[in-house]
Design a protein around this nucleic acid. Structure first.
Lengths: 198, 198
DNA sequence: ACATTGAGCTTACATTTGTAAGCTGAAATT
DNA sequence: AATTTCAGCTTACAAATGTAAGCTCAATGT
């Protein structure tokens, strides 16, 4: 194996180790360099050959999470074409997706209102992209102004993300209930149903 | 000073020390018993005379936060009576309130999706109360079903809380923009305006 | 072929952490 | 007045953490 290949492999081992340790009970801030290194199978000090900091690793994780968001968006779009309800399909796709990449989404959710300013803005940027894409879709679909579409998209994304966070810890049955609830909330936002009195 | 009085005073010193250390850059999980004790002006081991654990202290903080939520709700209700827009008044009241008690709200927001299950459920309970009260109001106002009102209230609370979190770190000008945006989002949820095409 | 590079290692150290053990002195009880 | 209680203290220790210094040795470059 070439040197570069080997290095890349170890780098991925570190990243994967970090993601693996991010669980329901462990935030990024509570990870220690030594623990991550141990899980990655390297000596603590070897970590520095790849990242100057735990922070730098963290930002890398956020980038990866951004990639997955775009992947999620694409996947949802594909399913939309040949199905009926856009909202229902999207929410269901989202729920499936986060179950497979739960730790990625926990990272985004936590660091969104986390303690590190660098993290917060990195996460904000990724979610912003996500919102912008969604807003673009909404704007075309509804012929609304760009500004309104963005505000609408932001609300939708916040609600879906939070629903996702709740769903991660829930049983299948509860998750189903959360999904239905979220679809309802998005429909109101989308203006499909006039909410309470309707 | 009586013994009980003195003890209570120290207990409050600990609680206040903890709240003070909770800032934009410091989550509860990152507080250390020693730091809190230092700020409270007691020896580290004296902490145990009041709480068995940092966790127990944390749950106490969550309880206090719950009290403030109820206080906020009351304050918003009072203002609503002699004003025009319910939503606008509520959001503005909320924004003022969290600026004065920023660390309390940061605690709730973070621990809502934080790492400790005990915390999560404690926060969930407090927010649940808040939502239930709001839902009750909405139900009467709109003559909607209890179920729908609750789903509606939950969406509103999530959006307002998140807006609050963003507003905490923002300039006055940006905060104003966030407020306007949030009002718009709540209006859609409340069914006041049919969103995009309207 | 020899020299250089650099990923990963071992060892080492100063800090910080939680918490156990046990003392003190003033308030409360008898 | 004598005794008990207990909030807060000091001292002590084991564990974990970040990271500096410097070695090794295989892949690269010349």
């Amino acid at each position: 194996m070439s040197r570069a290949e080997q290095k890349e492999k170890t780098r991925r081992a570190i990243i994967n180790a970090a993601f693996q340790q991010l669980s329901a009970d462990k935030s990024f801030a509570s990870l220690s360099l030594r623990e991550v290194a141990r899980e990655a199978g390297i000596a603590p000090t070897s970590f520095y050959r790849h990242f100057t900091d735990m922070d730098e690793l963290g930002l890398t994780l956020v980038d990866e999470a951004g990639l997955m968001l775009r992947q999620l968006m694409r996947q949802a779009r594909q399913r939309i074409v040949h199905n009926r309800s856009v909202i229902q399909t999207s929410v269901e796709t989202f729920m499936e997706f986060i179950l497979e990449h739960s730790n990625v989404f926990r990272l985004l959710l936590r660091e969104r209102s986390g303690t590190s300013p660098a993290f917060r803005s990195a996460v904000a940027r990724e979610i912003q992209h996500f919102c912008a894409e969604l807003a673009d879709y909404l704007r075309k679909e509804n012929k609304s102004s760009a500004e309104m579409a963005l505000i609408q998209a932001e609300a939708m994304v916040i609600l879906v993300f939070h629903a996702g966070a709740d769903a991660l810890d829930a049983s299948d049955e509860v998750r189903q209930r959360i999904t239905v609830k979220t679809i309802q909330q998005l429909r109101w936002l989308a203006g499909g149903t006039k909410p309470p009195a309707g």
